[in-house]
Computed example of a mutant assay.
Amino acid sequence: MPPGQLSLKGRALRLLSGREHSRAELERKLAAHEEEPGQLARILDDLQAKGFISEQRVVESVLHRRAAKLGAGRIRQELQAKGLDGELVAEAVQKLRGSELARAREVWLRRFGVLPQDAAQRGKQARFLAARGFDGDVVRRVLASRADEDET
């Protein structure tokens, strides 16, 4: 290996030092640097055995970083894209469902804070929330509840 070039394990550790990565993400990012077949799998097995790779920590990290801005649908997509176990993803999304309405209201408030005055504004606000992964029922409740709260 030329001087100054990181080993495969060094590359993996550098990636892990920046943020949590799933095994599938590491495989995808490091496959081009594998020098012999099976080398990457052995290194990742070793890192996983030592606790450097943890799917549960990846899930918790994504939830911590993204839940305040995104709905459960969008977070589910991100977790699935990381190649995480389907059961773990479903469990994480289920946890988010309880706070979905409150989180959607907070996102709406930060972005708009003013009730839509016409159908075009209502559509714009609804699309904004839907694009962030909040489902249709939650979007309708956020936009309807704003009117209810202002009247009381």
Results as ranks from 00 to 15, higher is better:
1 M>G: 15
1 M>L: 11
3 P>W: 07
4 G>W: 05
10 G>R: 12
11 R>V: 02
12 A>I: 06
13 L>P: 00
13 L>F: 03
15 L>G: 03
15 L>D: 09
16 L>I: 01
18 G>I: 11
20 E>Y: 13
20 E>N: 10
21 H>Y: 13
21 H>E: 11
24 A>E: 09
24 A>F: 09
25 E>Y: 03
25 E>W: 03
27 E>I: 08
32 A>W: 03
35 E>K: 15
36 E>K: 11
36 E>R: 10
38 G>Y: 02
39 Q>V: 02
43 I>E: 00
43 I>T: 06
45 D>S: 09
46 D>C: 15
48 Q>H: 06
48 Q>F: 04
52 F>G: 02
54 S>T: 10
54 S>K: 02
55 E>L: 03
56 Q>V: 15
56 Q>I: 14
57 R>K: 10
59 V>A: 03
59 V>H: 01
61 S>I: 05
62 V>H: 00
64 H>E: 13
66 R>A: 06
71 G>N: 02
71 G>V: 05
72 A>L: 06
72 A>M: 05
73 G>K: 01
76 R>K: 12
77 Q>T: 06
78 E>Q: 06
78 E>G: 06
79 L>F: 11
80 Q>D: 05
86 G>M: 04
87 E>Y: 11
89 V>W: 05
90 A>Y: 06
93 V>M: 04
96 L>K: 04
97 R>H: 09
100 E>T: 12
101 L>P: 15
104 A>P: 03
106 E>T: 04
107 V>Q: 01
109 L>Y: 10
110 R>V: 07
111 R>P: 04
111 R>W: 12
111 R>T: 12
112 F>V: 01
113 G>E: 04
115 L>T: 05
116 P>Y: 09
122 R>D: 01
123 G>S: 07
123 G>D: 07
124 K>S: 08
125 Q>L: 13
127 R>C: 07
129 L>R: 04
131 A>C: 08
137 D>N: 10
145 S>A: 13
147 A>V: 14
147 A>F: 15
149 E>W: 05
150 D>T: 08
151 E>F: 15
151 E>C: 13
